[in-house]
């Protein structure tokens, strides 16, 4: 069972600010989903390796050559706030 405190903690980790109603709703919905996920515990996976990638691809590399970059203005132009060529953010602490 996931508690409202768990939901609070997870929301903090995920940087989400939830209203009381949302907390209620998410607690309820997450419990439903996690309950369904319990079925997985029935499966014997003792000697089964995990599959993070379905394809057996390995060693994909790029040569160490400087490429053409985009105009930095293009990236700065879509910033919510900038100062000269910096991205501007509220104070950290």
């Amino acid at each position: 069972m996931i508690s409202k405190q768990d939901v609070d903690h997870v929301a903090l980790l995920a940087r989400l600010e939830l209203t009381e109603e949302e907390k209620e709703l998410y607690t309820q919905q997450l419990n439903k989903i996690l309950n369904a996920a319990k079925a997985l515990q029935e499966v014997d996976t003792d000697n089964i390796p995990p599959t993070a990638h379905v394809l057996p691809i390995q060693n994909v590399f790029r040569e160490d050559r400087v490429g053409k970059s985009i105009d930095p203005e293009k990236a700065l132009a879509i910033a919510p706030e900038r100062e000269e060529s910096f991205f501007k953010v509220p104070k950290i602490v």
């Binding site: 790029r62 050559r65 400087v66 490429g67 930095p72 990236a75 910096f86």
Partner: peptide
């Protein structure tokens, strides 16, 4: 190295802020 670990931006020290970047 000449370029960053996951893209082909230069690793040169200094430079205008955010000018050694890409998407």
């Amino acid at each position: 190295t000449n370029t960053k670990i996951f893209c082909n931006c230069t690793t040169e020290f200094g430079g205008e802020p955010n000018h050694h970047t890409c998407p």
